[in-house]
């Protein structure tokens, strides 16, 4: 995979979501208000309903009280993902299939009017002829791989002959141009892959990566970044605030909508103490989806002590079994 293509893929991914959020935020404010109400604070008795979500950050006085509904703490989690940067590896069958299709396409293509596209005796025409000879040689060698040895040798001899003719015609100017336009391919396996550096965003380029953080405790230490929703706050605001508190503000993120993509309900063990005045029996975590385009997590060693960018399969090794079962379906297989 060339570096250019890789950059293009990244640009496509980044650009697309740079484009989507703008419109998303602008186009459906009415729906967003409704969703925010129904998801964050509609059933909260003590929380006042907000008139306009987009005004909350500046207009409504923020409260540090946590949101508790029916003796359950409401918590917002964030599933931060990094999209694949390069195309996936092809299976051997796919490779063969595409090669076969390519040959069919070449055989059945309409004749190419070279005289229309290239001026006679021009450099472009010579270069095209040379490339065409190379392509013919390549296709003839690949078709003759299964055939008898005599025909294979004949075809390779023929291709050699055409190749040598073409190279004779080439001038110094052509060779310089060919050297300049030569594409160098980057490695599909990066340095981070070789070192197994799970903190790097430059790893597993073909897969979607997810951010998990480690909290300073024995049980359930690895999980998605999460934190309690405060009064007068919707889920997305809570998620982005918590992420900033835990992982630092050095990340360029886009939240995919304001609707959670999954939830996790669990009851607290007996004797669990919270600072809330009301008795709290359990917690409901709502997961918001976000994409990262640039930046990195900064560990403050207070709330979190470590982090990792992992694929869906690798996540099994970090989080507990119950937690994985809950979040499994939110994650991408690609």
């Amino acid at each position: 995979m060339s570096s250019i293509l890789r950059r293009q893929v990244f640009r496509a991914a980044a650009g697309s979501f740079a484009a989507v959020p703008r419109m998303q935020i602008q186009a459906i404010p009415a729906r967003l208000t409704l969703t925010a109400r129904s998801y964050a604070s509609a059933s909260a008795q003590e929380a006042p309903l907000k008139s306009n979500v987009s005004m909350t950050s500046s207009a409504v006085v923020s409260s540090t009280k946590n949101l508790i509904i029916d003796n359950t703490r409401i918590v917002a989690g964030v599933v931060v993902s990094r999209q694949p940067l390069i195309l996936r590896d092809l299976s051997p069958f796919e490779q063969e299939y595409f090669l076969y299709q390519k040959q069919l396409e070449r055989d059945n293509a309409a004749p190419f009017g070279a005289e229309f596209y290239f001026k006679k005796g021009s450099v472009a025409e010579r270069r095209w002829k040379q490339q065409e000879a190379e392509r013919n040689a390549r296709s003839s060698t690949s078709t003759s791989s299964s055939s008898s040895s005599s025909s294979a040798s004949a075809s390779s001899a023929a291709s050699k002959a055409t190749g040598s003719e073409a190279s004779e015609e080439l001038t110094e100017e052509d060779r310089v141009a060919a050297m300049e336009s030569k594409i160098e391919f980057n490695d599909r396996v990066t340095e981070a892959d070789r070192k197994n550096d799970v903190r790097s965003l430059e790893r597993a380029l073909q897969r979607t990566l997810y951010l998990i953080v480690k909290k300073p405790r024995e049980e359930h230490s690895w999980q998605f970044p999460q934190g309690g929703v405060r009064l007068c706050e919707n889920l997305q605001e809570a998620a982005s605030r918590e992420l900033q508190e835990e992982c630092g503000g050095n990340m360029d993120l886009w939240f995919v909508g304001r609707v959670p993509i999954g939830h996790h309900v669990y009851s607290h063990p007996k004797g669990f103490q919270t600072e809330a005045a009301v008795a709290v029996k359990g917690t409901k975590v709502f997961f918001m989806k976000a994409h990262i385009f640039a930046g990195q997590v900064q560990v403050d060693n207070k709330e979190i002590v470590d982090f990792a960018w992992v694929t869906k399969e690798e996540m099994k090794n970090y989080v507990s079994e119950d937690y994985y079962k809950v979040v499994e379906d939110m994650l991408s297989d690609f």
Binding site: L5, Q8, V9, A12, A13, S16, F17, V20, Q24, Q83, P84, L87, R88, L90, E94, Y97, F98, Q101, K102, L104, E105, T208, V256, G257, V259, I261, K289, S332, F334
Partner: peptide, 24 residues
Amino acid sequence: EYTTGVSRLREHYHGTVQDDLMVL
């Protein structure tokens, strides 16, 4: 119609856009 390779935008659609459109 010959499929001579994986299409970049098609992969992007199936891997990323589709999931996000579902949410949005």
